[in-house]
């Protein structure tokens, strides 16, 4: 068996195969199953974990400062005497919501422009593509840091700047995918029926590039989670005293030798979330572009 057989669903590469629903693609691979299981678990933890917190996440001095695990505080306390477990259970929402919003925004703006350009071609396409190219030459983290240095940080700034990073990348991919399908007869048929551009893009183009779009969404979500968590870690996202996994890692870093759980727990939370989305993204991408080398002499 080759790797392709192990990792990808055993279906022939043709138009029918492309039409397999995304969830089935993911479920058919080992990595996809692991990703879905871990992702679902993290989703439950982020959504409902707060209701099981033994202490209030922001209450100071519920225990002694900077302590390792004990009976009262299963994962110890941080430098202000707050309960690490309670802060962990309450601190995952912004690590998921901000990236999710920014990727949705990037798909609406970048994906919309990309599909429009790919469908229309001509001058509009040229302007859109050149703008994407210009944005792509900028170093992402550096530019976002400089913008935050200038105008300060808030949830809205995080969402918009992160979206700005992903707009040209999403846009270029969806433009390419659109170009590949616009030559099909069903698009010509819709044009002949006199349908409007928006209707054709939404009803004829979008369903036929859905596989690429979904895989791209999962991949960008992974990068966005990494990006936003990193900004939070650098102290440029969520502000204290909010419980936020990225911020908690930074706060606990100083006392890592005395109270390692205060850093380890939120770091593990972020890792589990982004690894899960990356596994799902990889399973989806693998379904679209699979390994080509088969039936060769073994080296």
């Amino acid at each position: 068996m080759t790797t392709a057989d192990v990792l990808a669903p055993v279906v022939p590469v043709d138009e029918e195969a492309r039409a397999t629903p995304a969830w089935r693609t993911v479920l058919n691979t080992i990595e996809g199953r692991i990703g879905l299981a871990v992702g679902a678990l993290m989703l439950l933890l982020i959504a409902f974990g707060r209701f099981f917190a033994p202490y209030s996440p922001n209450e100071l001095g519920v225990g002694p400062r900077t302590q390792g695990p004990s009976a009262e505080h299963v994962f110890g306390t941080d430098s202000l005497g707050r309960d690490v477990l309670s802060r962990f259970l309450s601190g995952g929402d912004m690590i998921l919501l901000v990236p999710l919003l920014s990727v949705v925004l990037a798909f609406l703006v970048g994906g919309g422009l990309g599909m429009f350009g790919g469908y229309r071609r001509g001058r509009a396409d040229l302007v859109i593509t050149r703008t994407f190219d210009l944005l792509l030459t900028l170093p992402p983290l550096l530019i976002v840091l400089v913008i935050i240095a200038g105008i300060g940080s808030s949830t809205a700034v995080l969402v918009v700047t992160a979206a700005l990073v992903f707009v040209p990348r999403v846009g270029r991919l969806l433009r390419g995918a659109t170009q590949a399908v616009v030559t099909n007869d069903y698009v010509a048929a819709a044009q002949a029926r006199g349908e409007r551009t928006a209707a054709i893009i939404l009803r004829e183009v979008l369903p036929n590039i859905a596989a690429s779009a979904i895989a791209e969404f999962a991949l960008r979500l992974t990068y966005a989670i990494i990006f936003v968590a990193t900004l939070n870690f650098l102290g440029l996202g969520a502000q204290p005293p909010n419980p936020n996994w990225g911020l908690m890692v930074a706060e606990g870093r100083t006392y890592i030798a005395i109270s390692p759980w205060a850093t380890l727990l939120p770091a593990a939370g972020i890792a589990a979330l982004s690894i899960a989305t990356n596994l799902i993204a990889d399973a989806l991408t693998r379904h679209i572009a699979r390994d080509t080398a088969r039936g060769t002499v073994t080296l």
């Binding site: 990494i226 890692v249 899960a276």
Partner: peptide, 23 residues
């Protein structure tokens, strides 16, 4: 390619690539 070594390295690479640098 196709053996368990390749497969575990592949999944391992997805796992490591999915982690932020600071983690």
């Amino acid at each position: 390619a196709g053996t368990w070594k390749d497969l575990s390295l592949l999944i391992g690479s997805v796992v490591v690539a999915g982690m932020p640098e600071f983690v």
